[in-house]
Structure formats: structure tokens, C-alpha cells
Nucleic acid binder design. Sequence first.
DNA 1: CATGAATGAGGCTTCATTCAT
DNA 2: TATGAATGAAGCCTCATTCAT
Lengths: 217, 217, 217, 217
Amino acid sequence: MQETTSEPEQAQPEAGLRDRKKEAKRAAIIAAAQAEFIAHGFAEARLARVAAQAGVAKGTLYLYFDSKEALFDAVLRGALPLIFAPPVAPDPGTPPQVAFRRRLRAAIADMQASGRDKLALIVLSESAQFPGLARIYLEAILEPLFELVRDYARSSGVARLEPLTRYPQLLLAPMLAATMWNRLMTERPPLDLPEMLETHLTLVLGPPEGEPAGVTG
Amino acid sequence: MQETTSEPEQAQPEAGLRDRKKEAKRAAIIAAAQAEFIAHGFAEARLARVAAQAGVAKGTLYLYFDSKEALFDAVLRGALPLIFAPPVAPDPGTPPQVAFRRRLRAAIADMQASGRDKLALIVLSESAQFPGLARIYLEAILEPLFELVRDYARSSGVARLEPLTRYPQLLLAPMLAATMWNRLMTERPPLDLPEMLETHLTLVLGPPEGEPAGVTG
Amino acid sequence: MQETTSEPEQAQPEAGLRDRKKEAKRAAIIAAAQAEFIAHGFAEARLARVAAQAGVAKGTLYLYFDSKEALFDAVLRGALPLIFAPPVAPDPGTPPQVAFRRRLRAAIADMQASGRDKLALIVLSESAQFPGLARIYLEAILEPLFELVRDYARSSGVARLEPLTRYPQLLLAPMLAATMWNRLMTERPPLDLPEMLETHLTLVLGPPEGEPAGVTG
Amino acid sequence: MQETTSEPEQAQPEAGLRDRKKEAKRAAIIAAAQAEFIAHGFAEARLARVAAQAGVAKGTLYLYFDSKEALFDAVLRGALPLIFAPPVAPDPGTPPQVAFRRRLRAAIADMQASGRDKLALIVLSESAQFPGLARIYLEAILEPLFELVRDYARSSGVARLEPLTRYPQLLLAPMLAATMWNRLMTERPPLDLPEMLETHLTLVLGPPEGEPAGVTG
DNA sequence: CATGAATGAGGCTTCATTCAT
DNA sequence: TATGAATGAAGCCTCATTCAT
């Protein structure tokens, strides 16, 4: 139990090193798999490509994951925590509407940048094969967003917005639709997601206030 | 009904009969394939099941379609014309807003009832494999709807709605989202699509007028 | 029901031809598999070799059998009926002891010649993997033999043989042992199975009577 | 317990300790392997399970054995010496027939208790893969038993038993058969091996004498 | 035109064996 | 000496596609 002096902590750091390496490899595999699933969907994803991309042998995948499905599962779960980590500290002082809009913008940008929107699509279309997963995944993604919307609609005190507490989807749907659009309509100029979002929010919620203010006002 | 005499005398009716039979079989195959693709997605669809369902041998599929992809293509194209057949005659005399809302309602109901919403999902998620198809399909479905929205926004003369001429998606997205929701969240009470649509339209367009009329002011 | 004359019954014989071909191929596969299982045991048996030996593609095996285990099962079941088809017609007139001995001799010779003794061994040693099969197989092979022994012991009226009605195994075990011996001790001169059997029967049952009579003349 | 000083001073006792430790580990591996082979046969045996059971890492196995086959070989050879260690001191004074029967009984009981009967089965069925081994193993087990039988048959002076000097198998086969039977027919009441053996010996050799005495004689 | 048996490339997965630590 | 992560050959099996009938 005593501390080793010169060559400190033999077991601990060595195991730590091992574990760190394992964890790094695990992460590499998940990253490679995520790219593969995003590029080809579940059924057409090839574990050989995942292994090659991750720089390991095919068999090595099975040291970390029991099966292709388990790997898919891990990719999804791995993506989950990233989805709604508050992107910027809540910054007290900003009016709620501004914070709300920032939050939505960040969520959109993150989905787009990470490619997780494509994962969501895959889960959607292959939900027949992964029934439980679809529920978990979508709940983990959507429920927090819904709560965000409901909170805002309630706290805003605007009567017109009351329906959003029942159908928070209404506010979020265009983001989903637009993100799909951009992923699919690669031959066209992409939609300007932030602007479109702003437009939609203005359409539904009214013009923004408190923010740097674009127009004169 | 007459027997074919071995000499192609009445080429017309005989060929017509043949063609009708061929066409019927072709239709049966497409119907079976549509069900299969909807139920399992593209990759997991099995031609053996399609053939069995259509009541033909597996080899027979190849007399009508070159490949699994060609069959998928045919299914999609077969579904297209149905999507926007005007469901009810335009019925002159109804105010444009009412007609517009009816049209949207009909489109939604049709998508839902036919299962074509699932087809759309499949195209979405497997668009990497079917790049051209995705474009064609979505354009055929969405463009007419967009045009409908743009027309309405323009002709309404309401300034607030001007953004819809640039982003007609904003009005349609909730329908897409809701249809996906209901397809996936089978464990929960389904969203009431018509009501949700109405809510959304009211939220964006304002309360309906000319129709039975809900609130007053 | 009528006899086929020149070219009658189109469906029947054509289907018959197809079926006959399928049946022939099925038989060829089973034969090839039996040889393979006998040569290498279950786990080391290679379906590639079975297919090659049977003159079919690997995938073809799966048109006839669901899995390697199912093929093994079929091999065993296919071997069963052969095991105790009465080799010669019972020939009334021969005294029961003679008939009994003949029967045993034939059973031994048949097991040896067909290689089914090796199959039995495989079932034995891999019974952990095929629990039900072991029971079925051994019952199908052994129970009839046991019954034969019991019948004889009872009908002989010899008091000394009474234990055989309880332990018919005692009379048959040497045949099992000897057949194993010859299969394993390939480097030694093989046991003369018939003679050994005769010796054993004489040892237990007493000298044969009624048969051509051996030495003296 | 003393620290190794880096200079190999007391090579003898230290090495002895080391050797003992190594030997213990080696024994643990063999024991684990024997259990594994008995439970699953050779092909289905998993070195991972052996290592886990022995409490060592998988790689460690290869410090002691070159390959899975070498380990199997070691298991068999390790089991050999146990098979015919005279279970009770020959005890002079008992009549030969009694000693003989006791010996057989002990051999049977030992095979059963140790699970080595299953090992024998495995060797039998996989003899194609281990040709040399099969011979060695079976000779080591059977030859001593055969000699026992031959000795007895000769020394008994009973003419009827003369065939046993040529076919000692005849006396032993039921034990082999019965041991197999009990291993396989786990769903049925097991054969009472000692009683069956006694029955067989009585059937072939005549009623026992000198022992507690059943009949008078 | 229709059939359905046959094909065979290629996917996922296993596991004895190796090797850097 | 011991570890256990990594390897990669090889097996079983699937299924879109072909072709003789």
C-alpha cells in the first residue's frame, strides 16, 4: 500500500495506460463504425471496412463488441450524451427567449456537424429491426428538446403558444426536416439552416427581442 | 373470351388480353414488393418473400425487373402517381384557405393510409445507395406540395406569410415529423395527425375562416 | 393409376423426374456427408468437402438441409432404417437358436460394412451436443437388438440365461467393443468378428446346435 | 519468503520451490483441461475456459503446452498412471477368483468416478485425428486388463474359459458398454454397474466362490 | 413465359495462437 | 515468467441472380 517513490505507481498507471489504450481503441472503433453506418446504413455497413478504418483486425472488433448489432448500439449510445450537452454555459442574464433560441441553434448545428442526424435516420428506417433502440434513441434526443419547448411555451405566458405545450413537435419539426433535406438534396444549394430556423421561430413565436437586434425596431 | 386460334389474327384483343395479364402480374409483383420494402426496408427485403406473396416463382421476378434495385425503383415510381392525384375535385366556390387546408389534410391521410410514408423513410435513410432516386422521389412528392404552399402564401396577401414562399418546408415539416413519429413510437398513443395539423396551421396561418369556424375573435 | 404407355401423363412423370433428381441429389449429399462425418467427426467435418464430394455447390446444401446439424441429423436418421432391416427372410424351419445367431451375425456385418459403427461412436462422444439425438439413435439401434436377445433368452427356457432378460447388453457388448476395436486398432491384425461372436455366444449360450455342425463331421 | 538476491546462490531449494510452483500450475492446467475435454470433447473444448478454470491467462497455457493437441495429449497421459494403480494392496490369502473380481470392480468404479471413461470415448471418436494417441491410450488401459483376464483364464484351469485367453475382450466388453450406456442414457435409470458386472461374471465364469458365498457349491 | 433448383461470392463470427509489455 | 490484447485464417451460412427444363 505504500507509495512507490521513484518509479511511482506501478500497477495503477500501468493499468491506467492499458486501459487508456483500450479505451482509445474502443473509441477508434466506434468512430470508424459511426462513419461506416452513416455512410452505408446498418445492413450495408461492412465490418471489414470498420476494422480497416479503425486500424485493427476484424477479430479485434469482437473483443470490444459482441456483434454488429452491439456495435451499432454502441455507436448510437455513444452519440447520445453528445446530443444535449449544454453547448454553452446557460449564462444567466440573457432573456429566456434568447437563451432558448441559442439553445436550439446549437442543437441543430451540433447534429449537423456530427453526422448524428444520419444516424437518427438510420434508426428511423430500420426501427423494425431495432425496436427498443429506436425508442431509447429518439426519447433521448427528442424528449429533452420537447421539454425545452414546453418550458418555454409555458413560461412565456403568451396564449398563442399554448398549443406548443401539447405539440412541441411543431416547433422542432422544421429542423428535422431541414436537416434531412440538406443531407439528401446534395445536388442543390443547401438550406441555410440557421436562417431558416430563425425564420420559423419568428413565424411562430414572433420577432426576436433582446438579442443584438437585427432590424431597427 | 374466345380461344386463341394459334394464328395471330386478332392481334389487338389477344395482345390486349396478354398485356392485361402481364400487367396484372407486374402489378401484383410491385404490390408485394411495396409491402415487403415497407415492412423490412431495402436491405432486409427478401425477393423470395416478394415472389411468394405475388404468387410467382423467384425467377419470374427477373422477367419483369432486372434486379432488386430496379424493383425498388419501380415500387417508388409506382407510388408516385398516387401521391398527388387530387383527392377531391377542386370544387370551385370554396374559399382558398379552406381548399388549401383540405388539400393538405388529404395528402397526409393518403400518405399514412398507403404506407408510402415508410417508403419515403427508406429512401431517406438509404439515399447513399440510391442517390438519383432520392432526388426524383422527393422532388415528385415535395415539389408539388411546396408549390401549393407558395401559391397559397402569395395569394393570401398576408405579409406575415411571405417567408413561406422562401421556406415552404416550414409549413410541411410537422406533417413529415408527425408521420415519422407515429410510425416509430408504436408503444405510445399515436399523435392525432389531423388535429396536430390543424393546430399547426392555426399557429402559423391564423385561425381558419369560412370553415365551420372555431373560436370567434 | 394406369400404367404409363408411351408418353402419357405430362405432369406426373415430369414432376416424378424432378423429384427423382432431387431425391438422388439429396441422397448424394447424405452419402457424402456420412463419409465426411465418419472420417472427421462432427466438429471437424467440413461442409465444403461434403459439397465437393456430392458434386454440388456449397449453397446447394442449404436447399436440402437447414444447417450442419440438420445434415448430421439426416445422416443419422438415414442410417437408422438400414440397421435392422431383416437381412434375410426369416426362413421358417430353422431352429430359433440358429436364426438368432444368424441375425446377430448379419447385424454385425452390416454395421461394419456400412461404417455406421463410426457414426454411433460420434454420437456417443458428442452426445453432449446432441442430447435428444443420442437417445433416439441408440434406442433405434439398441432397443430392437435388446428385444431380440430378451425374446431368445425367454423362449430358450434355459434357466442360466435368465439374467439376459434383465441385461441384454451382456450379450451384445462384445460386438460393440469389437467393432470399436477394429476401427481403432488399425495397426494390428483385426479381430475376426464372426469368430469372436461365435466364441462369445458359445461361451454364454453353450455350443451351437442344429447348425451344419462344425468340426467333427 | 526471502528476497531473491539476483545471485543464484541456493539454486537447489529455490529451484525446488519454483519447480513445485510450476508443477502445481501445470497440474492445475491439466485438471482444468481434463474437465473441459470431458465436458465438451476435443473439438468443442475452449482453451479460454481451461485458462479461466485453471486461474491463469490464456497465453500462459502456451508456456506449458505447445498446442491444444499437446494439452490433450498431456491430459490423457496424465490420466493413464491413475488407471491401474492397484487400488487395494493385493492382499495375499484371498483366492484368485475373488481377487480377480475385486480388481475388475475396482477398475470399473475408478473409471466411472474419475470421468476417464469419457476421455476414452473422446479418444475413440476422434481417433481419426489422433491416430497414435488412440493406440497408446487404449493399449495402456486395455492391455493390462487383458493380461489380467488371460492370467485368470489360464490359471483357473477351467477348459470352458480357454477362449478368454484368445479374446479377453469378451469379459471386459460389458463394462465398456455399460459405462457408455450410463454416460449417454442420462434420462433413464442408470445401470447398476457392479451388479451387472457380477451377473456377467457369473454368466461366463460361473457363480462366485470363496466370497461371502451366495450358493453353497 | 414460367419455374425453381442451383450457384458462389461474400458476410459475420470464432478461436487457437502470438507477442509486446 | 505471466499477461491478455491482438491477430487472421477459416468456417458456416445467406441470398440475389442464373439457367436448364
